[in-house]
Design a protein around this nucleic acid. Structure first.
Lengths: 157, 157
DNA sequence: AGTTTAACCAACCAATTTGGTCAAGATTAC
DNA sequence: GTAATCTTGACCAAATTGGTTGGTTAAACT
């Protein structure tokens, strides 16, 4: 999974959309202003989000974007998948699928990255836009155990 | 967390180190050849790994690198932290810590990224270099439940 | 009908990051 | 001393990011 700023912008935008546009469409200009993202960049992101079936657009005056599904059904993982096309792992499968399983000596780490991808997907699938809007993010799964105290700073700090 | 190819190269290299260099130092040239990573790039990575206290270096002929600790004690998370300095979240805290908690309206997604970072760290901390060498990666935690079948391709594909 | 609002679309671009090379030391074994 | 190896720093090409410019449609409201 990619986890770039692009994906984060997209999530911010959809959360904003769910938060403000109750039933009427929200214009990108409004989102741009509130989230301080450039309008043109948002247009690029929403083009992908629309192709991904995550939002519906309404043209003309009073138009804008709407969530295609309910906020409770819009998963964060889907947002990131829509804008941030999947990464290709190091050296594995330059062309063929399972290409790196042939050469067993190299690419021992393949399984690790695969499993990590599963973990990330699993978590981001468990969180919906509605969860983020209602700040119900921490504690969705009780996995925080251990190291909640010190330790190095992370993703969002 | 960053999850770039740089981190993946570093993990590949340390796994190789644990796999081949039983007690005598392993030269970067050997790792470079086996893992097909450019020697000069490896040098950069190992400089960071050494500063991070993950490997020890032995200079002169017959020299090379050794794991600073046992493979069972070298966690994947630490490797990635050492080479891939932590990412800064979107727009949050341009300078100050807790800077984005002040403006409550924006940056609702802060908690999400923070929690995601925790999840990734948690997983990568649960896997050691020894686990990867012995292919004991899948099933470390039983979290695979659900969606093991279809669905979009991921991190390592 | 014509103006306005806004989604759409496709080039283009500057800054940064990534992945990598090259050249030159420094340190130790032999 | 010389060969092997780590160490450092400058440099570089390609990709990505975030953004701009300049349109074109489509719908709504005078």
């Amino acid at each position: 999974m990619k986890l770039s700023t692009k994906g984060r912008y997209a999530v911010m935008a959809l959360v904003d959309l769910a938060d403000h546009g109750d039933d009427k469409p929200t214009s990108l200009a409004d989102i741009a202003e509130r989230q301080e993202i450039s309008l043109s960049y948002l247009e690029q992101l929403f083009a992908k989000l629309r192709r991904g079936g995550l939002v519906k657009s309404v043209r003309g005056p009073g138009g804008g974007y709407l969530l295609a599904h309910k906020a409770e059904e819009t998963r964060i993982a889907d947002i990131i998948l829509a804008v941030d096309e999947p990464i290709r792992a190091t050296r594995c499968t330059p062309g063929q699928p399972f290409g790196c399983r042939i050469n067993k000596s190299r690419c021992v780490t393949h399984d690790l990255w695969e499993e990590l991808g599963n973990q990330i997907y699993l978590y981001l699938s468990s969180v919906t836009v509605a969860d983020v809007v209602n700040r119900r993010v921490l504690g969705t799964s009780g996995v925080i155990q251990g190291r909640s105290g010190g330790g190095p700073a992370f993703a969002a700090e």
